[in-house]
Write a protein that binds this DNA or RNA. Structure first.
Length: 220
DNA sequence: TGCCAGGCCGGGT
DNA sequence: ACCCGGCATGGC
């Protein structure tokens, strides 16, 4: 079976089992970007609380958020963990919007995708996964997002090696699959859903897993 | 009660 | 080019 066929088979299995995920779980492109930074090495439920804080305080926009004093912002981010680090990272992102795009998230996002990605990677605290999450889920451009789950899944299938880096894993998907944002969006969302439900438990439900293996087994 | 979650950076080899 | 410690909360 070709790599393309294997990747599509995995995708179809997940889609059949879980149904369309319709990601990213956010109301606006800006909220996607904020969530992408806050969810770094952090459970999504914690991120939701931090976002809820921002919404409650009516500061969930690039200009209003930027006007907050660092202490205040960090306090609102507290439930997401690493709140001091994330305050700086979020602020650096807001500075980019302010300084290079007149405070307009739309202007940031409607750039050519390659250029957008480069610009995001230039921000301290935005790495490849975070940048690609924004490019795919906020700007709608076809960049495959690679996370820990994704890597484990590919290893378990013998499609990637444990030592493979981000770029290598990403290239596997992007070289084998049609470059469609719709597909990349849904595929990544399904992988995360699989990870949440089937990887975390110490006693995984092998019977109910839509794939015939578990991504957490002996591959990290 | 530890271990872990949708990373990333900076410093050391 | 890797490897590692640090960052922090809340759920299981």
């Amino acid at each position: 079976m070709s790599r393309r066929a294997e990747l599509l088979a995995i995708y179809r299995s997940l889609l059949a089992a879980f149904g369309p995920q319709r990601w990213w779980p956010a109301r606006t492109p800006f909220e996607v970007c904020v969530g992408a930074i806050l969810t770094q090495n952090t459970a999504w439920t914690h991120v939701e609380r931090a976002i809820a804080n921002l919404r409650r305080e009516r500061v969930l926009g690039p200009r209003k958020l930027r006007r907050l004093a660092p202490r205040r912002l960090a306090g609102l981010l507290r439930p997401a963990g690493y709140f001091n680090v994330k305050e700086r990272r979020l602020r650096a992102f807001l500075d980019l919007i302010h300084e290079r795009h007149g405070g307009s998230i739309r202007r940031l996002l409607r750039q050519e995708p390659v250029r957008l990605r480069e610009e995001l990677l230039g921000v301290k605290g935005i790495g490849k996964e975070t940048a690609d999450s924004m490019v795919l889920y906020a700007a709608g451009a076809p960049r495959f997002v690679v996370d820990a789950y994704t890597h484990r899944v590919l290893c378990r299938h013998g499609l990637a090696a444990p030592g493979d880096g981000y770029d290598a894993v990403q290239a596997l998907f992007e070289d084998a699959l049609p470059r469609e944002a719709r597909l990349y969006n849904e595929y990544h969302a399904l992988l995360v859903h699989l990870g949440k439900d089937y990887c975390r438990s110490r006693r995984p439900r092998c019977e109910s897993c839509p794939l015939a293996w578990h991504p957490h087994e002996g591959t990290t």
